[in-house]
């Protein structure tokens, strides 16, 4: 599965060479947030690779699971070892399209609503998703933002009974990427 994900990502990069204009970042931010009456848990990853081709709407992001940081060391350990099994599944990624890219003028300053559709791979499980987001164009950069939920069950992430009440079954995911044009 790891090889399949890498091949998919590389295929996207190769297809990307055909693009005339790509906007990318290597310092995007993704946040996982779980809220239950017992505990609020937040994890942040500030080393997210992401690319957007404004012409075709192709959009991708890829993250290293071990780059997620938690407030508590124990939570980070459990996240990597027990839930995400990051030794076995070191990456998560999204590969898809901005469905309404044709309606967005990425050369014009302003905020645009976007519908993003594609495949989200977490914990070695790939699922088709469709989410809403925004792309804000300012000073030649494109700021992409989206907030959506993922069900742990959908990605076969098992939480032991002892801590089940501490972790929400639905995790809120926030994607925040400031994309800059790559000059050839």
């Amino acid at each position: 599965m790891k090889r399949k994900i890498s091949v998919l990502f590389i295929a996207f990069l190769v297809s990307g060479t055909m693009f005339r204009q790509n906007f990318v970042t290597k310092t995007g931010h993704i946040k996982f947030y779980s809220d239950t009456p017992i505990e609020t848990i937040e994890a942040n990853n500030h080393a997210v690779n992401s690319a957007l081709n404004p012409k075709t709407g192709d959009f991708v992001f890829k993250i290293l699971i071990k780059s997620f940081e938690f407030e508590k060391a124990l939570m980070q350990e459990h996240f990597n070892e027990n839930y995400m099994e990051s030794d076995k599944y070191p990456n998560a990624m999204f590969k898809g399209k901005v469905v309404n890219a044709g309606d967005i003028d990425f050369g014009l300053a302003g905020t645009n609503d976007a519908i993003i559709k594609g495949d989200l791979t977490i914990h070695g499980v790939t699922k088709a998703v469709e989410e809403n987001g925004t792309f804000t164009v300012k000073d030649g950069k494109i700021h992409g933002q989206s907030v959506f939920s993922v069900l742990l069950e959908d990605y076969k992430i098992k939480v032991p009974g002892a801590v089940k009440k501490q972790i929400s079954e639905s995790i809120e995911v926030t994607v925040d990427v400031m994309l800059e044009e790559v000059k050839p």
Binding site: F9, L13, K26, A47, N49, L64, I65, K66, N91
Partner: peptide, 8 residues
């Protein structure tokens, strides 16, 4: 080291 993301 958190790994290799196909670029870095």
């Amino acid at each position: 080291c958190t790994g290799y993301n196909d670029t870095d």
